[in-house]
């Protein structure tokens, strides 16, 4: 391991987001993602993890707006770019996989066309060549019979297949950063494992950095080297994954870890009562403006999935 860490691919500095100019949604969030790293954001719904991802891509919709902070992508300040320049980055250098593939895909276009569009727009290819590349992209995400599937419409595919198509689209232009917002929440557990493995394999092969947004700590542990825990619009803690599970620093993280029903933890002859979050973390520990508890990055580990 080298002593100095590479420059981050994405640097979020004191990011603030408000709704309708009056309600603060994000109270200053800062974190870095290094090249090739998978960074996880966990938290409950409403903690601001998804809006952070959307803000990086520049996809926030009114009434949500960034009202403070900075986003550095490689050496560019994203918030100072024009809408046109950001659009050029989006899909090419940074891409997103959404939770619900059925609403994210166009139901009226074949999936081959939707993937090919990426090559036409960002690479200036002709449609014939782009279609051939689209079939290749489908093959890369291990879709069986890619030629045939390229001619299918989204509704003709299963949930897992649709999510693979989303991944193929997102990774088509070999972006530097992939933002995956709950990529497997809508899928069955048996399918989830395959999709996570696919994301990990492809990103490792290309050295793509990933921002993985999830509420599932199991998924986070499976995929990420580094994890940020969000609560009520604040990043309360950031650690290497193993350290986070072994030695959670913030009471909220401890509560979150304790509240999980865990396989194999029920004791025979007893009822499987669970620890509730409120029993671990007090109200005064939450929603306070306090610096994020951060531990330095340890030696960089391989993605385990």
């Amino acid at each position: 391991m080298s002593d100095h860490l590479p420059d981050p691919i994405l640097s979020v500095r004191d990011l603030r987001i408000c709704a309708a100019r009056q309600h603060q949604i994000l109270h200053g969030v800062s974190f870095d993602i290094l090249p090739g790293e998978t960074y996880g954001l966990v938290g409950e719904s409403g903690s601001g993890k998804s809006v952070t991802g959307l803000a990086v891509l520049g996809l926030l919709k009114r009434p949500l707006a960034v009202n403070g902070g900075a986003l550095y992508f490689k050496d560019r300040e994203l918030l100072k770019l024009s809408a046109r320049e950001r659009r050029r980055l989006r899909g090419d250098r940074m891409a997103m996989v959404f939770q619900e593939p059925m609403t994210a895909l166009n139901p009226l276009a074949t999936i081959g066309r939707q993937i090919a569009e990426m090559f036409v727009i960002h690479r200036g290819m002709g449609w014939t060549q782009a279609r051939a590349k689209a079939v290749e992209a489908l093959e890369n995400v291990r879709v069986p019979a890619p030629e045939e599937r390229a001619r299918a419409y989204p509704h003709q595919l299963s949930g897992g297949m649709r999510q693979r198509v989303m991944i193929a689209m997102a990774l088509a232009c070999r972006p530097d950063l992939l933002i995956a917002d709950e990529p497997t929440t809508a899928l069955d557990v048996t399918v989830q494992a395959g999709v996570l493995e696919l994301i990990a394999d492809l990103c490792r092969a290309e050295g793509t950095a990933v921002l993985l947004v999830s509420h599932d700590l199991g998924v986070i542990a499976n995929m990420c080297q580094r994890v940020g825990v969000m609560d009520r619009g604040r990043l309360v803690e950031e650690q290497d994954t193993r350290a986070l599970f072994e030695n959670p620093l913030h009471p909220y993280t401890r509560g979150l870890l304790a509240a999980r029903p865990r396989l194999g933890s029920r004791i025979a002859g007893q009822r499987g009562r669970l620890t509730e979050l409120d029993q671990v973390v007090t109200a005064s520990d939450r929603g306070r403006d306090a610096p994020t508890l951060v531990t330095p990055r340890g030696p960089r580990e391989e993605v385990t999935a």
Binding site: D216, N222, G264
Partner: peptide, 14 residues
Amino acid sequence: RRLIGSVPDAEAIL
């Protein structure tokens, strides 16, 4: 067995 094996459990993975 496949169902139980696919449950992502953080500690077991780490």
